[in-house]
């Protein structure tokens, strides 16, 4: 019995995050894209990196993407939505903008259709865009200053279908009945039509929404503490996952949040299984302190991108094969 307990404890305490590799700035916006794979921009094309084989593969033509700061992917992996700071001059995307009478020296949101290998730009006033398997959603400000809207596009042909007026928001998530809105004063609103908005929290920041749109994860500030909570969007019931988290959690579609606690632990929370898992660092990661790490992104259940206090970014995980170039 004692032997079994010792073996059990040794398994529990064994490091499960044993590797770290420095990654370039261009890789810090990478997001999960299928099994063991991340999608990122190398500055010219969209590429995937399988971190268990080390293979890097271009999935788009060389179009002069430029610097990309935000990427999200539809659950089916058919649509990639990204925000580019500025596309490369004389590249295909710059030409596409100019052909549409738009300036290529400003920033845009783009949609890449993986099946047809085509890029579509969204209007210049778009603040945030998201994709599900059939539709693209774009939160935009009215250029005449009269408010904000969410426009829904058919992803297959990028034809806009509906536009609703919404309260001023900095971010949004698609739910099974409508949208969750994040307002500038850290309020979370739930709405179906943008007109009637139910306030769920007055001091909270959304982390992510499950693929079925029925649950959300958020960080709620209460009495000076920051708690990671799960919100049942059907009943509005709230369950505290853990108290006293630090920094901002990151989200891996469809259901995993990576977060750090004040006690110096790094954990994932699976919204489907409702299980927490500790990330125990091996000796090679001793220089990385979860208390001071910026969680930059999570690209798989056991692989994440973190940034230290010196601004150096690393891919951390286990059974990683580094890419020859990223």
């Amino acid at each position: 019995m004692i032997i079994l307990i010792v073996i059990g404890l040794s398994i529990l305490e064994r490091p499960n995050i044993t590797q770290k590799y420095a990654v370039p700035k261009s890789f810090t916006s990478a997001v999960g894209f299928g099994s063991n794979t991340a999608v990122f921009s190398n500055g010219n094309e969209l590429a995937t990196y399988n971190y268990t084989t080390g293979k890097v593969r271009n999935i788009s033509a060389a179009v002069g993407l430029g610097i990309i700061d935000t990427i999200s992917v539809s659950p089916s992996d058919n649509y990639i939505v990204f925000h580019g700071d500025q596309v490369s001059q004389n590249g295909q995307l710059a030409n596409q903008l100019e052909a549409g009478g738009l300036s290529p020296v400003t920033d845009y949101w783009w949609v890449y259709n993986v099946r047809t290998n085509t890029f579509h730009y969204l209007p210049q006033n778009v603040l945030i865009a998201e994709a599900d398997n059939t539709q693209i959603y774009a939160l935009a400000y009215d250029t005449d200053g009269s408010g904000e809207t969410i426009t829904t596009y058919q992803a297959s042909n990028m034809q806009s279908s509906t536009t609703i007026s919404v309260p001023g928001s900095t971010d949004f998530f698609v739910t099974h009945t409508g949208f969750l809105l994040q307002t500038p004063n850290n309020t979370i609103l739930k709405t179906t039509n943008g007109i009637v908005n139910q306030q769920l929290f007055s001091n909270a920041v959304l982390t992510g929404v499950s693929q079925d749109g029925e649950n959300a994860v958020a960080v709620v500030t209460q009495d000076g503490d920051r708690d990671l909570v799960v919100i049942n969007l059907e009943t509005n019931n709230i369950k505290v996952v853990t108290k006293n988290i630090i920094n901002n959690p990151v989200w891996l579609n469809p259901n995993i949040a990576l977060y750090a606690t004040k006690t110096g632990g790094l954990y994932t929370y699976n919204l489907t299984t409702h299980k927490q898992s500790a990330w125990r660092f091996g000796s090679k990661l001793s220089s990385l302190k979860p208390l001071t790490l910026q969680l930059t992104g999570i690209i798989g259940p056991n692989a994440a991108i973190v940034t230290d206090t010196f601004g150096n970014s690393y891919l951390i995980g286990s059974k990683l094969i580094p890419a020859s170039t990223l």
């Binding site: 309260p167 943008g194 007109i195 908005n197 139910q198 306030q199 007055s202």
Partner: peptide, 17 residues
């Protein structure tokens, strides 16, 4: 015009625009 339910201690924001 719009119709909504208001529960106790609940806050509803109406975006009349």
């Amino acid at each position: 015009a719009t119709t909504f339910f208001l529960s106790k201690n609940q806050t509803i924001l109406i975006n009349a625009a």
